[in-house]
């Protein structure tokens, strides 16, 4: 169905075409037979881990495609540093700025292995990941503290609670800021893939001679709607498939003109006998910039349209989960939302 559109919405009411004896109601079977997905591109980073996926999603309404996009950005959970305990910071970067920078570091850990921490929960091995950072600059020279200096502490915090410091340490184990009941190393998934920052070279601070940073960072599970640091995607977006139509034959000099007009090189020229005729060679590259219909009379020759139910989806992962897993997780979250409504109503 190709429709010239001014807005993204399609006709939704089931009886919209009733007077034309056309039933517009939703039919799952029809949806099932029309819906298709085609993956067009997968990109990998230097560690051979997938970080980008592009795919075509055809036969679905914008409202549902948009729901997937919105969930990807703001409701698929990840782990991020939330609490920073600073023991010493004599660098020029302020505590709160440093803590903010730490929060934004993507961590390569599967968030599905962890639980959300509610306000009443104590930090334990199921909801908290602890990192240690200790950097010191000697006399002479300067150093840059990078994200790879964050060291994972599978045993939990090493800082003692202030109430414990004066108490006699003879009897039982002293209490720290976390109460881990076991070593996180004992979880098989974490043993195979130790937790750390996804990228080793993120600058955190620069230290001058004699300056020192000593801190502990606690990462918890969260969602992008609370803070963007928990968003699992660098971004996720879609566009509708552009459809460029030549309304009349464009030949000779005009064809050359049209080819040059387009900055995305959508048009090409084919030779028919001794004639040159313009063709639409790469409509997917079109950005709908309208450059081709600028100038007197061109809008009568070329039309730019969009296919309303064909989405070119792109998902860029920040590294916690590969992008295809993010998409399936997002779809599952929409299912969970529906299920919640059903249980609340019955």
């Amino acid at each position: 169905m190709f429709v010239l559109i001014l807005k993204t919405e399609s006709v939704q009411y089931s009886g919209a075409y009733a007077s034309m004896k056309v039933d517009n109601s939703l039919r799952l079977d029809q949806f099932r037979s029309n819906f298709r997905v085609q993956v067009t591109k997968i990109e990998k980073d230097e560690k051979k881990e997938e970080d980008l996926i592009e795919f075509d999603m055809v036969g679905i309404d914008a409202s549902i495609a948009n729901a997937f996009r919105r969930i990807l950005i703001s409701e698929v959970p990840t782990m991020a540093i939330e609490k920073v305990l600073i023991a010493n910071n004599t660098s020029v970067i302020q505590d709160e700025v440093l803590a903010h920078r730490l929060g934004l570091i993507p961590l390569n850990v599967d968030p599905r292995l962890f639980e959300f921490m509610s306000e009443s929960d104590l930090p334990n091995e199921k909801n908290t990941i602890v990192f240690k950072l200790h950097a010191r600059c000697g006399k002479g020279g300067r150093i840059t503290v990078k994200s790879d200096q964050l060291k994972w502490l599978p045993q939990g915090s090493e800082f003692l609670l202030s109430t414990e410091k004066n108490a006699p340490s003879s009897t039982s184990k002293q209490r720290t800021y976390t109460s881990f009941s076991c070593n996180q190393d004992s979880i098989p998934e974490l043993r195979d893939k130790p937790i750390g920052p996804k990228y080793p070279g993120i600058n955190l601070a620069r230290l001058g001679p004699g300056q020192e940073i000593e801190l502990e960072a606690h990462a918890v599970k969260g969602m992008g709607k609370t803070h963007a640091k928990w968003s699992p995607v660098a971004t996720a977006w879609y566009k509708m498939l552009p459809e460029v139509v030549l309304l009349e034959n464009i030949e000779g000099e005009q064809a050359e003109k049209l080819k040059i007009k387009c900055p995305q090189k959508v048009f090409d020229i084919e030779d028919i006998g001794n004639k040159k005729r313009a063709i639409v060679a790469r409509p997917r590259e079109c950005t709908l910039c309208r450059e081709c219909i600028r100038g007197y009379g061109w809008d009568k020759k070329v039309a730019i349209r969009r296919v309303k139910d064909h989405f070119l989806f792109t998902i860029e992962s920040t590294g916690a989960l590969p992008p295809e897993v993010l998409f399936t997780e997002a779809v599952k979250i929409l299912e969970d939302k529906c299920e919640r409504v059903i249980t609340e109503l019955s």
């Binding site: 549902i64 529906c338 299920e339 409504v341």
Partner: peptide, 24 residues
């Protein structure tokens, strides 16, 4: 009616998921 629609939306999502997995 709302419950049925939620059910339909869930079925659509399940179909999206399986189609996506196949394509991948």
């Amino acid at each position: 009616v709302v419950k049925d629609s939620c059910q339909d939306l869930m079925l659509m999502c399940q179909h999206v998921r399986s189609t996506f997995d196949q394509a991948f």
